[in-house]
């Protein structure tokens, strides 16, 4: 009879992996469609200006930039706001606070496993597809190293922003509203939907003073530049590092202040 127990588990495993494969399959289709639409849209846009580079970006540059931005956003979305909002509303947060680990760290590392799967299942395939599709327009050199460093810092900044927004859920019950606002602001001002190079001069100046551009625009411009000026690289990474520290501290401080509200209200 014991064997039956194990077979049940095996069966569940098969069904689960099957479901995973089906959902992965549908996700790939969705991403392909997005790729197709982006490809044709920008092809038409560039055709209307005679296929000249605009704001220093060629058609391929823009394509690579936008498609990889989408792949990166799969990476960045950790559902932190949802998780925190739900835990705060249900009161489960009190249990999490009892853990011998800082809450922000606990939340980050309990999700970190999917970085690995996301990297292999979404980012890498997309990267390869785009590299082939653009006939090797992605420069492969020292810029890859800068890109990786930059992405690590981008993940940190993005998580800090998420954590700060999640903390707001202590004050309001509207998780959906808070989350959609954050998503919209981050995606637009980070240059994930339209590269910052296309922004009008004044808007670009404003946006470059905000932390958001360090999430998508910084790593992607570093990647696209095969022969970067060291001063530029240093400046970009330096600004990112600054934001990593600032947002980290801001998140910690805000959390500490807000936590009093939970302990006072008893969750």
């Amino acid at each position: 009879m014991n064997l039956k127990k194990y077979l049940t588990l095996t069966r569940a495993g098969i069904i689960e992996s099957l479901q995973f494969r089906l959902s992965a399959f549908i996700m790939v289709i969705g991403n392909m469609l997005y790729l197709i639409v982006v490809y044709f849209l920008w092809k038409a846009i560039y055709a209307s200006v005679g296929n000249e580079p605009i704001n220093g970006m060629s058609f391929y540059d823009t394509l690579i930039y936008l498609v990889l931005a989408t792949a990166l956003s799969g990476f960045m979305e950790m559902y932190t706001v949802w998780e925190m909002g739900r835990n705060i509303q249900s009161g489960k947060i009190v249990l999490d606070l009892l853990r011998p680990m800082e809450y922000r760290k606990y939340l980050f590392w309990s999700y970190s496993g999917s970085f690995v799967t996301q990297f292999f299942f979404t980012f890498l395939p997309t990267f390869i597809v785009v590299a082939v599709l653009t006939h090797g327009a992605i420069p492969l050199g020292i810029n890859l190293l800068y890109f990786v460093i930059s992405v690590v810092m981008a993940v940190s900044i993005n998580y800090s922003i998420d954590f700060i927004v999640g903390t707001i859920c202590i004050y309001t019950e509207s998780i959906w509203g808070i989350n959609i606002m954050k998503q919209v602001v981050v995606m637009l001002l980070s240059g994930a939907t339209v590269p910052l190079a296309f922004f009008p001069e004044t808007l670009r100046k404003v946006v470059s003073c905000l932390p958001f551009q360090s999430i998508y625009n910084a790593p992607l411009t570093l990647l696209l530049n095969g022969d970067p000026d060291p001063a530029y690289v240093l400046q970009t990474l330096g600004i990112q590092l600054l934001w990593v520290v600032v947002m980290l501290l801001a998140g910690k401080l805000f959390w500490r202040v807000s936590l009093r509200r939970i302990t006072v209200n008893g969750g």
């Binding site: 846009i45 309001t172 019950e173 509207s174 959906w176 509203g177 808070i178 989350n179 959609i180 606002m181 919209v184 602001v185 995606m187 637009l188 939907t193 339209v194 296309f198 922004f199 009008p200 808007l203």
Partner: peptide, 24 residues
């Protein structure tokens, strides 16, 4: 409060959509 914040969120979505369109 949920109602107001959700509505603002929805308006933000529309404004952002329009802004990216405009920038383009």
């Amino acid at each position: 409060s949920d109602f107001i914040i959700s509505t603002i969120g929805m308006i933000c979505t529309n404004i952002a959509g329009f802004v990216s369109f405009w920038i383009l």
